[in-house]
Amino acid sequence: MSRLELRHVRKAFGGLDVLADISLSVGAGEFVSILGPSGAGKSTLFQLLTGAEHGAGEMFFDGAPLDDHGRHFAFMPQRDALMPWRRIIDNTTLGLEVQGVGRKAARARVAPLFAEFGLVGFERHFPAQLSGGMRQRAALLRTVVQERDMLLLDEPFGALDALTRAALQRWLEQMWRHHRWTALLITHDVREALYLSDRIYVLSARPARIVREIKVPLPRPRDPTAAAAPLASALEAEILDILLNPQPFKGHDDD
């Protein structure tokens, strides 16, 4: 049973086709990635989901047309978008505050999560005092504590250095195994997609359409060295081949 389902979603910005034809689904407790070149319109897709933009095509959540956008998704933007003027604890309660949860109750709900997110002792710090990796974990904490049906992660590790990114990918995979969030991740990092996802949709360059859907049958917990395993490297080679040698579009029936 899929929770999110998109059928032939299209979007153009003034004559410029950004999304040509996107059909995809995300099941309950499934981690799905959308992998594509930069500027392919991946973030536009999230804007459609969160209601910031409107496009053509059909979008369903739990079988019902997607109308009340705020209810289903917790969105984590590319850069951490932490508010420099709020302490970490007040940044993490932001989503709850917008939902109308009182300050005290919101703090009580985020407090127990600080340990798991490796942020104990930094509750009263300002974002500028934290490292890039910690800021990103705080941003994820702010996202998951909203307890929405589904996480939308827009290149959450894109701005980090390679080592921090690798550490956070491992940490996120571990967190996901505990929590089994339904998640949709946007990325242009093939290894990141393979390491974290159950399934990957590969996007073409703009105008974006889905050129391939790839199941990732790698066992969990994912072995950090799995990138070297034969199956993983075969998948990686296949995806890179699709991305780097684009085939002329021949039609794709996945309904």
Partner: peptide, 29 residues
């Protein structure tokens, strides 16, 4: 105001006035 903060707040369900008070006003300090 950082565009992503505004986008995130709207995704959280904040209206224009909430976005103004929570993000635009402090960003102007």
């Amino acid at each position: 105001t950082e565009a992503e903060i505004g986008q995130m707040l709207r995704a959280m369900g904040a209206g224009r006035w909430r976005v103004f008070v929570l993000a635009r006003l402090p960003s102007a300090l």
